[in-house]
Nucleic acid binder design. Structure first.
Lengths: 221, 221
DNA sequence: GCATGTGAATGGATTCACAGCT
DNA sequence: AGCTGTGAATCCATTCACATGC
């Protein structure tokens, strides 16, 4: 049963699967607000160009939630995914780096909604400290990090500083007690055990598209 | 030989591989500026916590570039990857959506550097049209998209609008002749053939971290 | 009858292990 | 001797196909 699940069981669910769970969740929220009560794996599969068996497998990781011959109850499944993803309660976040990207992320809807809240930005630049983002999130000194993490029970850190500063900021987050980090710096961080790190490299995506374009050019040349 | 490579050969190189090529490239640029002339797959593997055979396989897709018993010539390999990724010439980019995220991306270093240049932002909000980003990139009316794409030979479009507007913006990009798109909207786009689309969902990454945190909580509960 | 849940089969990507070159 | 390049083996994710239950 789902009762005594262990860390390793949790690890057994791959990032690909959890990513899809997030996508399903968004779709379910949409369906719920559209008043649809029931949905089948085939219907979800069509929306996302996925295989229906994959969706059933993804959803079955955490127990049987569908009804054979009928499908899944939209609201029930949605609530279930919310709990399973751990966003049934609020998690506070701090962003390191109050540059263009950090400020934009601080005001980004998806980061201040349904389970997440940006508590503060931190930076080392005195010209930025004391200001606020457009939506009113304060920029504090990096030295305030331990305090804010403790007071606001911050669980997630976002690194939005230049590559050269990323490792130090990472260390500062870990020292302050943050155990999950989203890294936007194009740097390979030496990672600490027991600290989950997920890196997003924005430039790689552009290079991927360039590679595609080059392929088309070569073919038509 | 690499002479008559076809589209399908190109497709045969997976996104995972090209992503790693981008990472190697960054590392090589770093090594080159540090004055290192030669590097082995084992050395690269250690830096990225990868298997050295994988690195050799990745690099061997496009021909033999190493020297047995020695390793890879840093500058030569770097130049080679730059050409292979198609960033040996400039590619122009337009960002749709001059909100927080779009403006931040317009000024983002990695998007205005080494092969990429943001030509303009486009938006429908009259209050935004006519302004400029901090680094001076102009915000034009969405209706100007066909003109700017034609004049500036824009090849890549970035979607940084709310989910509800994403499909329309996508259509506008395609109609204007853009064939590669980077999508930041949390929406499943109905894709056109012959148009490459790569989606980045920022929120999914936070939910992934939340899932990890929940796993730790459950274990220690 | 119909859609879920799941073992078995398939398909891809990673890793191993070694032949081949310098 | 040392490191690349690569077939073979392994591992993991996806898909198939069907038994199971409403």
């Amino acid at each position: 049963m789902a009762q005594n699940r262990t860390q390793s069981d949790h690890d057994a669910v791959s990032e690909l699967t959890t990513g899809r769970l997030s996508v399903y969740l968004r779709c379910l929220a949409h369906l719920e607000s559209a008043g649809q009560h029931t949905v089948s794996s085939a219907e979800l599969a069509e929306r996302f160009h996925l295989n229906s068996a994959q969706i059933r497998k993804d959803l079955a990781y955490f127990g049987e939630f569908g009804t054979r011959g009928v499908g899944y109850n939209v609201s029930r499944l949605k609530e279930h995914l919310v709990r399973e993803l751990g966003i049934d309660r609020n998690r506070n976040v701090v962003i390191a780096g109050a540059g263009n990207l950090g400020m934009a992320l601080a005001d980004y809807r998806g980061f201040n909604d349904n389970g997440f809240q940006i508590a503060a930005l931190v930076d080392v630049d005195p010209a930025k400290i004391g200001r606020m983002s457009r939506s009113g999130i304060p920029v504090l000194a990096l030295t305030e990090l331990p305090r804010i993490v403790g007071e606001r029970r911050v669980e997630i850190g976002i690194i939005a500083v230049p590559a050269g500063a990323a490792q130090d900021v990472y260390a500062a987050f870990v020292a302050a007690g943050v155990t999950a980090i989203l890294n936007f710096a194009p740097a390979q961080l030496r990672a600490h055990e027991h600290v989950k790190i997920k890196s997003v490299d924005l430039r790689i995506n552009l290079e991927l598209l360039s590679f595609y374009l080059k392929g088309v050019e070569d073919d038509t040349a």
